[in-house]
């Protein structure tokens, strides 16, 4: 490999700086910005995926010729992440969407809960 002779591996340095910048941007978006919550969540999830890409391609040698140009690594990671997306989105879809647990049950039931909670709190 030609680039393994170099003293400083530039692609690692670039990858490191990129991940630091993306972490700071994500933290700023979540803590410091006034963007709508939905956009923050979409934005920081995209940043997370990009950072995972930096790790895989710049640090983990996914595409180097010796590993068969990354045929197996790429397939493992792609299908792993595809399954992960299906499992997380599918669980949320079946378990959470359409049910707001903060206001679960019927209206009367809800009020009863609240009354009970208030009693609990005054009891402390």
């Amino acid at each position: 490999m030609a680039n393994s002779k170099k003293r400083v591996p530039m692609n690692h340095v670039i990858g490191f700086v990129l991940s630091l910048v993306m972490t700071l941007v994500a933290a700023w978006a979540a803590i410091g910005s006034d963007l709508p919550v939905t956009w923050i969540i979409i934005g920081i999830m995209i940043l997370a995926l990009l950072q995972a890409g930096v790790q895989l391609f710049m640090f983990m040698h996914v595409t180097e010729a010796e590993s068969g140009n990354g045929h197996v690594p790429w397939n493992m990671m792609f299908h792993g992440f595809a399954l992960a997306g299906i499992i997380v989105a599918g669980s949320l879809f079946t378990m959470s969407f359409g049910f707001d647990h903060d206001h679960g049950g019927g209206g009367g039931d809800h009020q009863q809960h609240e009354e009970q909670e208030q009693q609990d709190h005054s009891g402390h």
Partner: peptide, 18 residues
């Protein structure tokens, strides 16, 4: 193995999200 680890963690992420 790493592909399997991604799926292992995905179940924990899904549980957390739910």
């Amino acid at each position: 193995f790493l592909g399997a680890e991604v799926v292992l963690f995905s179940t924990l992420f899904a549980t957390y999200a739910v």
